[in-house]
Design a protein around this nucleic acid. Structure first.
Lengths: 218, 218
DNA sequence: CCATCTTTTGAGAGTTACTGTCATTTGATA
DNA sequence: TATCAAATGACAGTAACTCTCAAAAGATGG
């Protein structure tokens, strides 16, 4: 019924996950869907840049993308999802699970994060900046960041649970994922707030140093 | 225009902040406002318990509380605020700032938290449990937890900034507040998920031990 | 007690995000 | 070319808000 998200890259996919997804052979139907999705997003970002997020209605976006409002909601469950969803969570989880299991989890996170972000910056730097700026500025988006499923917090929790090979996460895992996820989010937002002028790897390193130190500095 | 929140307890208020707020001399107008606010909340919780959160409309709540929908929104900016807002943030900040300035921030947080929670449990244990259960279950509430102003994250950030005596929080303060705030939230939710049967002081202690250790265990 | 000013309230109209249904179109398949 | 499944659009409906304005009720000074 609803259009599928692009599937996660398999473990043996090419090094660049973004390219990997784009290179996959697609049927006409799938190409059209992808195109529609991209058109909606593109037109949405254009209108939002012109008028602001709150002043841009779903109806306007749908009209600009030449689809009906119904169709808009078939591609994005909510207006917020335009900005909040991306397709990198599975990639990040894969990257996390690819790290040695006996490595401290903080180290795994730092390395996986830096790797993924570097990749993203090469291809979608501007879009990422725009998105993060919107998230910072629009309250409903800021809130939505922590909604079920696609928050960094959930992501780290899944990785931790799987790595431990258990079904249900423990309390320790929950608080760990929560803390690391929140700190990570804050770091990316900080980077966007500085217009991307600070080196994000340095910021991430710094964040994880603070986490590792047990917040000794404050 | 909009009804005022009960003001923060002054530094030299009685030990129990809840009582302190209730003991303040109130004009007839203020008493009515407080009563209206309490009635709305009480009727709302009653209806929500019967029908669930999503199935309970603002119109129903307003009718049950015998006010107009307009008035509902004068008392609660959003339906979510019924569950998400409380009046303890200023109390917590005061408690945090009352700790010695050279104490590690983590210690200050742990002690202030345990103190406040113990206080709350004596008077509003059931309501707190209900609220936290709702927050866990209803997605929009879970998201709203992190919205501007009344999240633990914001609260810790304000405390950190004031304690350092500066205007703008540093990057370190941001990630620290984010991590501690998220871990704290998770802890309280865990307590509620276990129906309040675990000792919350023990849970909090455990959480802060994990934070202090630099996540050495995972 | 009365007159006046201010705050609070209710009524009503309007906007917008979202849901659900159903008939039509369009790509896939044999 | 005929058939089936997926995608779309039109439409009606719901509910959370927002705004405006006039009426009601408490505060205040005489």
């Amino acid at each position: 019924m609803s259009p599928e998200q692009p599937t996660a890259a398999p473990p043996n996919a090419p090094a660049n996950p973004v390219q990997a997804m784009l290179e996959a052979p697609l049927s006409l139907r799938e190409r059209k869907k992808l195109k529609t999705r991209q058109t909606i997003r593109r037109e949405a970002y254009r209108l939002i840049a012109e008028q602001g997020y709150e002043n841009t209605t779903v109806e306007q976006i749908a009209a600009a993308a030449e689809v009906s409002p119904s169709t808009f909601f078939r591609y994005f469950a909510t207006k917020d999802d335009l900005v909040l969803t991306d397709e990198y969570d599975p990639v990040m989880i894969t990257a996390l699970l690819a790290r040695p299991a006996d490595e401290p989890f903080l180290t795994s996170c730092r390395e996986a994060l830096i790797g993924l972000i570097r990749e993203l910056l090469q291809h979608e730097r501007e879009e990422l900046l725009t998105r993060m700026r919107l998230v910072t500025e629009v309250p409903s988006l800021r809130a939505g960041l922590h909604r079920g499923g696609n928050s960094p917090q959930e992501l780290f929790l899944v990785a931790l649970t799987r790595r431990a090979g258990v079904e249900e996460p423990t309390f320790d895992m929950r608080i760990t994922a929560a803390a690391i996820g929140a700190a990570t989010t804050e770091t990316v937002l900080q980077w966007a707030a500085a217009e991307g002028e600070q080196d994000i790897a340095t910021l991430v390193d710094h964040t994880f140093a603070v986490l590792e130190s047990g917040f000794a500095g404050v």
